[in-house]
Simulated assay, not measured.
Amino acid sequence: MAAINVSAIMPDLLQIAKKAGDAIMEVYNQPASFTQITLKSDQSPLTQADQAANDVIAAGLAALTPDIPVLSEEGKMVPYEVRQTWPLYWCVDPLDGTKEFISRNGEFTVNIALVAGTTPVAGVIYAPVTNELYYTNGQDGAYKKQGDQEVEKLAVTGKTEKLVAVKSRSHGAPEEIAFLSQFAVTDEVRIGSSLKFCLIAEGKAQLYFRHGPTMEWDTAAGHAILAQAGGKLTNPDGEPFTYNKPSLLNGSFLCSGWQ
């Protein structure tokens, strides 16, 4: 992180995320019949909003940090032979929760993370429908700001006697139920996108286990925020969860509201 002062650029970074959210909302607020939905090569949906948000973020980051490369879900894929040499890069999901966007439940986010080597060190998650910003500069904690309200410092609850598990709105697997059975889970919350990480970071849940596949840009910003709030994201066996892998596909992982 020596090459960049994240604290100094955080206000600009938050504005980039909000402008991307504005671009998404321009599409979201159109009549549903006007929203063009296509399919990517892996058959996941791509809307006008994904590309509009990506254009805003790509331009904003290029102006803010021209020497730091960007790896984005909607951008050009970069071969591992190239990106393995990157000491720092932005890992971006312009619209996380496209299925939530299409179903119009509001549970989608803009994700921007700064990755140093193989570890996310700073990040921003913006939920445009609720105007909620979650962020960390990687140095002095994680924070939430909703609308014009005061900034709130985030903190996990720690390992409590009664645990709340957060689960995906659109995905699920029997393996997740089996894995979580080893914990004293007494309640569950279902929510879309990277907001699952945020719920743990702000102490509203303590566990999130994901068995099904995700991509690095789905988890990087949430990983950074959760870590700075006092929680952690690891492989199911407790080993470190790393980024900038030869394959950008993530394996299973566990988020917890304690170290």
Rank of each mutant, 00 (worst) to 15 (best):
T136M: 04
N137M: 07
Q139F: 10
D140L: 05
D140F: 05
K144T: 11
K145S: 06
Q146M: 13
G147S: 00
D148N: 05
D148W: 05
D148M: 03
E150F: 10
E152Q: 08
K153Q: 15
L154K: 06
V156T: 09
G158P: 00
G158C: 07
K159P: 00
T160P: 00
E161F: 05
K162G: 15
K162D: 14
K162E: 15
L163Y: 06
L163G: 07
L163Q: 09
A165L: 04
A165S: 12
V166D: 01
K167N: 03
K167L: 15
H171A: 13
E175P: 00
E176D: 00
A178K: 13
F179A: 00
F179Q: 02
F179H: 01
S181T: 04
Q182N: 11
Q182S: 12
Q182K: 12
Q182L: 02
F183T: 04
F183G: 09
A184D: 15
D187Y: 05
D187G: 14
D187R: 15
E188M: 12
V189T: 11
V189Q: 07
V189S: 06
V189N: 06
R190L: 14
G192I: 08
G192A: 06
S193E: 04
S193T: 04
S194A: 15
K196M: 14
F197M: 07
F197N: 01
F197Q: 04
C198L: 14
L199T: 07
I200W: 03
I200A: 09
A201I: 06
E202I: 08
K204A: 15
K204D: 13
Q206E: 15
F209M: 05
